[in-house]
Design a protein around this nucleic acid. Structure first.
Lengths: 138, 138
DNA sequence: CAAAAGAATGCAATGGAAGTGCATTAATCA
DNA sequence: TGATTAATGCACTTCCATTGCATTCTTTTG
């Protein structure tokens, strides 16, 4: 049993072949990717299975979704500390307007946000749009 | 000529009947709303026209889109200072997980965000999820 | 080990919304 | 007014999320 399998079991997710493959793919890429991206990476793959795989991952604190404004949600591995239903990824996401890539800037935490009296904050999403370090060259 | 017409002309958008209606609707509602919301508000309305109306508004700094994670983008009137292609709405958005309403907390500005060397920030989107003041009652 | 139960998968189908092309109508300008 | 430009409405396509159901795989248990 390899590390990925162990990890999935800890997260209470059965380490099936497809799930391991998807996990590995996400682990390799530093960027957040779409369902279609994942689909295209595998010769034989069913969209539904991938869809449900990601959903399972998301529910169990393995993956978090990013809405970068491109229209389709993207997904990336969570940081440590995320659990069932409770995400802890308070880092910022950067979406490049040129190459459309979205990356997790895990080193850059979201600063303290003030919200009005009576509101209860459960989750924060911060996306910065602009040019990434690759595209920002003239 | 009323205020809305004048405003649209300043923004270099022709004040057609439909545009005035959509603008008024957005001005009345404090919340960000979806295209479908708008569509349902009008007896006779064509989705395409509304779609293009919002797009025009967005391009001309009249409206800004919010991606609150609900899947469909929502739209709300911009604050002053937004112009052609340049949005200035650096306020935070609050999305309620219970009633699914999204509001612009214009009084709550987005704090300074640090991004890595080499990156160029053009736009920032900050969405807080949780319970709004209406739903946060037991 | 075999049977039963539970979970994951794959296929098919549905549904919602985005987006585009084109003909028609409305508004503006010379 | 006639010509030009813009906006609108309709039809259509495409994309993706989502669900139902039958099948396969895994795990549990007798």
């Amino acid at each position: 049993m390899n590390d990925i399998e162990k990890f999935l079991i800890i997260k209470k997710v059965r380490p099936t072949a497809m799930r391991i493959l998807v996990f590995r793919l996400l682990a390799q890429r530093k960027k957040a990717i779409t369902l279609s991206d994942i689909e295209n990476r595998f010769e034989k793959s069913d969209r539904t299975t991938l869809y449900r795989t990601i959903k399972t991952f998301e529910e169990n604190g393995i993956v978090h979704g990013v809405n970068d404004g491109s229209g389709v949600p993207k997904y990336a591995l969570c940081e440590e500390g995320c659990e069932y239903g409770v995400h802890n990824d308070l880092h910022l996401h950067f979406h490049c307007n040129r190459c459309d890539e979205t990356s997790c800037l895990t080193e850059h935490k979201i600063p303290q946000i003030n919200i009005p009296e009576g509101y209860l904050a459960e989750d924060v999403h911060l996306v910065v749009n602009g040019l990434c370090n690759t595209c920002n060259v003239d």
